[in-house]
Design a protein around this nucleic acid. Structure first.
Length: 315
DNA sequence: AACCTTCTCAACCGCCCCAGG
DNA sequence: GCCTGGGGCGGTTGAGAAGGT
């Protein structure tokens, strides 16, 4: 019974990787590229399972991996994405350039769950807890050396009551600064035409203008996912234009089905959050296709109402 | 200083998906 | 349609670090 192990275990090393092993793996991949993980260890001269090599590369050695503390923006984004996607760490990681699914998962489990509980929110469902988390006090309040020492106020976390008095969590968006392709009037328009929070209490309001851009972006045979990735990349000054282009090419397959598309649309507010900093919205076509816009906009509203309905009537 | 407890996170494990034969 | 193997994903573990007593 059971499955055959992914590779013969005898004589294979386990546990932490040495610097030498890291070097061997990195050098091999630099020369031969990723993939063929099963045969890679042998060829690279490593006494490791192929899966282990892949994991080490993906989570640690791969270039462009951001290490260290999560920023407030990243934290907010993770919470938002988690409320939409649940524990789909790889999807979440796809929206956070330089972060791996494993890292996000760890950060969620060790920091964010606690943080949400302290704020009186059930991390699994992103709803206000009826009973307050008992104050299991302060031992951990003192920052540990390894831990993130900056005590940030959770300014973005706001509890809002809906009309039917069901408490909902709203992550208040930060002010938007759009630098290119938007006139002052455009920005004013985007603010006035933002979704009303009373329609979508749990979702932050976002500029329709961005949705419009997204729609047309997709229409020009680029995928929303690429937009999200590219905006994420633009927000990160360290990323090169080559990486950006590469990301645009590497659109996930699962993004290509309808469900994926709807999911992407649902993430637009998250994407807009990434636009808050110095984002250049270059390369979009003219904003002329109103019917397409309306279609996506309606789809988006429907999604929100479905989500609200679902949260009001959990299974 | 020594021991105990708690926390973190890299790594492992096993399951699932999917392309290719 | 079925089988197989590679790759990917999410849950879990455990060693080591750090704080507490």
């Amino acid at each position: 019974m059971g499955r055959a192990p992914c590779c013969a275990k005898e004589g294979l090393r386990k546990g932490p990787w040495s610097a030498k092993e890291d070097m061997l793996l990195t050098n091999y991949i630099k020369e031969n590229g990723e993939g063929q993980w099963k045969n890679l260890p042998k060829k690279a001269g490593l006494l490791r399972c192929g899966k282990s090599c892949r994991l080490r590369w993906m989570n640690y050695l791969r270039p462009g991996i951001k290490r260290g503390n999560f920023s407030q923006d990243e934290e907010d984004l993770i919470i938002r994405l988690h409320s939409l996607l649940g524990n789909r760490w790889s999807l979440i990681a796809g929206r956070l350039p330089g972060r791996t699914d494993n890292e996000i998962k760890n950060y969620w489990n060790t920091h964010l769950i606690k943080k949400l509980k302290i704020a009186g929110i059930q991390p699994k469902v992103h709803k206000i807890s009826t009973k307050r988390e008992p104050k299991k006090k302060p031992k951990t309040e003192k920052p540990r050396k390894k831990q993130d020492k900056k005590k940030k106020k959770d300014q973005s976390l706001v509890v809002q009551k809906t009309i039917n008095d069901t408490p909902q969590v709203v992550f208040v968006p930060k002010p938007i600064r759009l630098l290119r392709n938007f006139s002052v009037d455009d920005v004013a328009l985007s603010r006035t035409s933002s979704l009303d929070c009373s329609d979508s209490p749990e979702m932050l309001s976002y500029p329709r203008q961005i949705l419009k851009k997204c729609t047309l972006f997709e229409e020009s045979n680029m995928h929303l996912s690429a937009l999200l990735k590219s905006t994420s990349n633009i927000a990160s000054p360290s990323d090169s234009s080559e990486e950006l282009a590469e990301n645009n090419k590497n659109i996930n397959k699962d993004d290509e089905n309808i469900e994926g598309k709807i999911e992407e649309i649902s993430l637009i507010p998250c994407a807009s959050n990434l636009l808050f900093d110095e984002v250049l919205l270059d390369g979009f076509c003219d904003l002329t296709n109103e019917s397409m816009l309306e279609k996506v906009y309606e789809e988006y509203l429907q999604l929100i109402s479905e989500k609200c309905h679902h949260q009001d009537n959990p299974i």
